[in-house]
């Protein structure tokens, strides 16, 4: 290899880095579209320079994800009233899916308030050393959790996660201490229809640095039938 670059390679590097301006930039840009060999040189430089920007991960601000998804996929935060009504009717009518969900409950179903149903479920570790009862209140779009067994290890806290069908888990909130906690459901979780999955992990104080569960996941539970469709 020579100690310098041929002119086309230099031009390709300058284009990949963004050093060209004015007419030179326009000419190179046109060439990328018309000259496959030149385009390949540009791509090669992109590959060779990208490791310079391969830096240690840095968690983006907490609100960035929701803001981005809202920007790309603007949607109403909550289902229309008639859907919520359908959900209520499904519960009141004893829909099978809801009945199954409620069958595993510890405290049993609570009579739904006028404005939305209440789902209850238990999150338990496989060995049973950690148990939490969760009540999802769709009237308020919040979840109430209370520990019945186990706790976060010393120096760690609990973090609550949730996701809808085929979606990645997102944080519902931190549970730093205490036997119980009430957390408002994030907008995306409040909008879930179908199976709502809840989970709890143990994390460093301040919560998972990655935006996903980073410590031990104690357990998860699926709550089916969180939907407005009638069977």
């Amino acid at each position: 290899m020579t100690d310098t670059l041929d002119d086309d390679d230099m031009l390709a590097a300058e284009y990949a880095i963004g050093l060209l301006t004015g007419e030179a930039l326009e000419a190179a840009h046109a060439r990328v579209g018309s000259d496959p060999a030149f385009a390949a040189r540009v791509l090669r430089w992109e590959r060779q320079l990208a490791p310079l920007a391969d830096l240690p991960p840095l968690a983006p601000p907490a609100g960035a994800r929701a803001a981005l998804l809202q920007r790309l996929f603007p949607e109403p935060a909550r289902a229309p009233f008639w859907q919520r009504l359908g959900l209520w009717q499904a519960l009141a009518g004893g829909a099978v899916a809801v009945a199954v969900a409620l069958a595993v409950l510890n405290p049993g179903p609570v009579a739904p308030p006028q404005t939305g149903p209440l789902y209850a479920a238990e999150i338990a570790s496989q060995t049973g050393d950690f148990r939490v009862v969760a009540l999802v209140d769709k009237a308020q779009d919040e979840v109430f959790l209370t520990r019945t067994a186990g706790a976060a290890p010393a120096g760690r806290i609990l973090q609550v996660w949730a996701h809808g069908p085929d979606e990645p888990a997102q944080s519902v909130g931190l549970w730093p201490d205490g036997e119980s906690v009430t957390l408002p459901l994030p907008r995306e979780i409040a909008a879930v229809r179908g199976t709502l999955t809840l989970g709890i992990s143990e994390e460093p104080p301040g919560g998972s640095p990655t935006g996903r569960p980073s410590g031990r996941v104690f357990g998860t539970v699926d709550i089916p039938g969180v939907t407005g469709t009638q069977d």
Partner: peptide, 22 residues
């Protein structure tokens, strides 16, 4: 596929944010 996009974000945002912050 929006769910795939959300998953892609979850898997890569800390890397891309590191670039932007740099």
């Amino acid at each position: 596929d929006r769910a795939a996009f959300a998953a892609l974000y979850d898997a890569t945002s800390a890397k891309l944010y590191a670039v932007c912050a740099r």
